Simulated assay, not measured.
Amino acid sequence: MRIAVTTPNGNVGHHLTRMLVRAGIRPLLLTRHPEQIAEELLPHVDVARADSQKADEVVAATRGVDAIYWVDPSVMSDDPLADYARATDALVRAVVENGIGRVVFQSSVGAEMRHGAGEIDGLAATEVALDALDIDVTHLRCGYFFSNLLLDPESLKAGRLTTVLPLDAPMAWVAPRDIAEVAGLTLLNREWSGHRVQAVHGPEDLSWSQVAEILTQELLRDVAVERIADDEMRQGLLDAGMPDAMAGAVLGMSTGLRDGFVPEQKRTVVTTTPTGLRGWVREELTDEAVRS
Rank of each mutant, 00 (worst) to 15 (best):
N11L: 14
H15L: 01
R18S: 07
R26Y: 08
T31K: 07
P34F: 00
L42D: 12
V45L: 08
V47G: 06
D51N: 00
S74Q: 09
V75D: 04
D78W: 02
A85T: 14
L91M: 06
V104R: 11
G110I: 09
H115N: 14
A117T: 14
G118L: 03
L123I: 10
T126M: 05
H139M: 00
Y144P: 06
S147A: 10
N148Y: 02
P153E: 04
S155P: 09
V174R: 01
V174H: 04
A183H: 13
L185K: 15
L187E: 09
S193N: 11
G194L: 04
Q198R: 13
V200M: 13
P203Q: 10
S209K: 08
S209G: 07
E213D: 15
I214R: 11
D222H: 06
V223E: 04
E226L: 04
R227G: 03
M233I: 02
Q235K: 04
G236D: 14
D239H: 02
G241Y: 05
M246W: 14
A247L: 06
M253N: 07
M253H: 07
M253E: 13
R267I: 04
V269T: 15
T272H: 03
T275S: 13
T275C: 10
E283L: 11
E283Q: 14
T286L: 15
D287E: 15
V290W: 12
